[in-house]
Amino acid sequence: MTLRASGLGRRFGKHWALARVDLEVAAGEVVLLAGANGSGKTTLLRLVAGLVRPTKGTVSICGIDPQRQPLESRRKLSMISHQAYLYPRLTALETTRIWARLLGLPASDVDLLPMLEEVGLGGRHNESVAGFSAGMKKRLAFIRTRLEKPRLVLLDEPFSALDAAGRRMVEGWIDGFRRSGTSVLLASHTLARAARLADRGILLQQGQVAWRGKAEEVAARLEAASA
């Protein structure tokens, strides 16, 4: 089991953003998290990523508890969210080089430029990240995921702020993850597109799991729930 969450809950002040969440994701599975704004999708991803501690419940990533072994669990996962966590004043190549070095990977231009080419940033590798569009920042973030070689990828609204070509690119990534046995937990509003890629779907409502089932049915479920 790549990811196992049991009784997961998180309270902010008096408000429980997430409560009683049980979730399991096997290797190579793509699971879609759906729900209205404020239903807890982002909180759940952040809990799994270890950015936030759970108030209740446990998380385990490939059997590792992020509270006990934060670095080991962090190495198993990668997160791409709307926050890019990039350095505006560095170039794409410099940013990639730092990531590679931190991960103990080959960091010469020969190793890194092909990766930049592959995501379509080949010509812009010497430009400052500050000038990048949201889509380009996402592509750069994807390189980091590739470098990290995680067992679990967390995607928070991966299709947002992307044009059609960008969205197709992300679909390709998700496909690639599945084929290589990497699990994906994907939170998205663009349900039609996301549901095509996912094996299962989970609907969150007021921070709790309201429904689990086949990915194709998620859209209908969400409609019904918000009616």
Binding site: R11, H15, A210, R212
Partner: peptide, 15 residues
């Protein structure tokens, strides 16, 4: 006093 109990569970449908 800052603590608040967990909310009641929702009815879950599984398929």
């Amino acid at each position: 006093a800052e603590d608040a109990p967990e909310p009641e569970p929702l009815a879950i449908e599984e398929r």
